[in-house]
Design a protein around this nucleic acid. Structure first.
Lengths: 343, 343
DNA sequence: GAAAAAAGTTTCCCCGCGTAAAAAATATTC
DNA sequence: GAATATTTTTTACGCGGGGAAACTTTTTTC
């Protein structure tokens, strides 16, 4: 079947009896060459299985079919899930997606953007690190490469932003918790890596005040992305010291809540809204595993599909209009309350 | 600060008053040029912040500093964690790591290898899909590109394999469970995507027989990578029908166990090894969240660090010896029993 | 300060391919 | 079968940079 190795398009063209530019045309669009020629190429193709070097191709194209996707931390299942969705949609739309994770480090985010620039992508979907981002570098990048920000906004940077409305997240959870029991205290990291956290804390305070209630914020120590551990440690301390001002805890995000639930379980505190339960715990994000916690976690979920959809739609529109939008668009999706047993 | 844009090395060389080959040399190793020249280049560098196009660079190098990493499913936290480790180590060793996820699809695995080939990597770390892999394509790829397989072996393919010893996993868990209580039944998917599962089932049977016991295997339906859901559904059915032959359940992997624990909790069955517990549940992999399940999951863990270490070491050695090893090496690490409260 | 060594410059060709323009070959039309 | 339209081939250049060879300049050595 496969005979000898083909090094490049020149060789392949010679072997298939067609000129190189025609072969090039074929790989750009097989329908664009006459069918007798196509047959010759395809005959050679399954005899020698040659494939053009995509980076050499892209180097010279007017517009590549590359799309870059950058997320701040791929080991976080929420981002893993979003990235997988985005990648799938880009591929379906005929693009070649390249995924980068900043792994929580500014240097890696910068490096990712640098490699992306070399790729000459048609467009980029970027979820910045946030607090840790090098704003200038990102702004310069966005000035060169058509970019849609998602998840976390950097005001004025990029052609569009798509994300979830953190205000809506917290309004829903707070409203629900107040309506069905004691008002919640808010459980979060003192120095969150995630800037969305700050928006959520503010929204919590606003929501409580809107109900004529005093905000109660519990801030726990810890750095980095080991959120479950941080949540666990903080919860253990709070529970041991009986420092909770109420029986209802609203965590800034699900990963903290997973740690909180583990601590509650260890302390023998039953979590849930039924009688005999000592605590109610709710959170935000609808982490892929939140449905499988014990008890299943009541949370306010991202509309992943909507954000992904709108993100890629915005990107495709951006690409079609030549990379620049008349004015920056910002799309915020309201969140969806997911009632489970924990609150 | 940043004045006008530099398009290529030629322009940058002109502007910095140095010849292009010297600039090229500088970017390959800043120490390789005289310090007066280096100063000129660096002066221009922070004035115009030019960076060479990495793909153009790699196109022509003898040996690139690229390393490819391919994992079967990045939304699985276990692989996300491994990938992050590998990436970090490669970067520390001065390589540029590029990460691909096959997302559980053969077509994407093939595509990843194709793009990798175009990258001309010095070496590749590949965790194949397994059952779903296109063996021929992978074999052909490995014949061209120095490759170390990890996690899942494809016998005879690639220059080396590094992974965990599934036999050791299961031997440890079975031995422990038998020693401390009832012998375990084995809970797994009927048609696992993951070929390691098959090795684990066999090891379970062998271990039980080694103790003079009859293997008890529970196979649940379900396809794909939503393992927690599959574990949950299967556990619900088994628990409702009281189909468990013993009070001790050994799950093929932690993700199934997470679903199992959720089902147990919902059924009001207390899991653990203490009195008053109805079930013991253990599993394999030491998933990042297993420490935070309720109760925390007793599991047999990968030595992530050892596998990562050995994987990159094998790769670096492979790269240094010019891409081929005299004979294929296979490294299996024994697993580490992680005792928690679930069993 | 002259000779030797080291580093930089010029000049060319290479990687693997896109693309444009002009010339040649095929297909289509009547 | 001639005229026209459509494809393909030829030729040539570009992308952004690696690398070798021959030559010139700078630095080091004694």
């Amino acid at each position: 079947m496969k005979e000898r190795k083909i090094r490049n398009m020149e060789e392949f063209a010679a072997i298939s009896g067609v000129s190189r530019p025609t072969v090039s045309k074929y790989f750009n669009d097989p329908e664009s060459v006459r069918k007798t020629v196509r047959a010759r190429i395809e005959a050679a193709l399954d005899k020698y299985d040659y494939r053009p070097n995509i980076f050499a191709m892209d180097q010279n194209r007017r517009r590549t079919k590359n799309v870059g996707i950058v997320v701040p931390y791929l080991a976080d299942p929420v981002f893993a899930e979003i990235a997988r969705n985005l990648e799938r949609r880009c591929i379906e739309a005929g693009f070649r997606a390249t995924l980068f994770s900043s792994h929580g480090e500014q240097a890696l985010e910068v490096e990712a953007l640098d490699r992306l620039r070399s790729l000459r992508p048609a467009g980029v979907l970027l979820a910045p690190l946030g607090r840790l981002s090098d704003r200038d570098t990102i702004a310069r990048f966005c000035a060169e490469v058509p970019t849609v920000l998602f998840d976390r906004d950097i005001p004025g940077v990029g052609e569009a932003f798509v994300g979830s409305d953190n205000m809506s997240f917290v309004l829903q959870s707070v409203e629900y918790l107040i309506r069905t029991g004691e008002p919640p205290c808010f459980f979060e990291m003192k120095n969150p890596s995630n800037p969305n956290s700050i928006a959520r804390r503010r929204s919590y305070a606003a929501a409580m005040e809107g109900h004529g209630l005093e905000p109660m914020v519990i801030q726990v120590d810890g750095e980095g992305w080991g959120l479950e551990q941080i949540g666990y440690d903080g919860a253990m301390r709070a529970l041991e010291q009986r420092a909770l001002p109420t029986d209802t805890v609203l965590c800034s995000n699900d990963r903290l809540a997973i740690g909180f639930l583990a601590a509650s379980y260890e302390m023998g505190l039953r979590v849930g809204r039924g009688s005999g339960c000592a605590l109610r715990v709710a959170a935000h994000d609808d982490h892929p595993l939140s449905r499988f916690t014990c008890p299943p976690l009541t949370t306010v979920g991202h509309e992943y599909d909507l954000v992904s959809n709108q993100g890629v739609e915005a990107l495709f529109e951006l690409i079609e209009t030549g990379g620049r939008l008349e004015r920056r668009t910002e799309t915020l999706f309201p969140a969806r309350l997911v009632l489970r047993e924990s609150a």
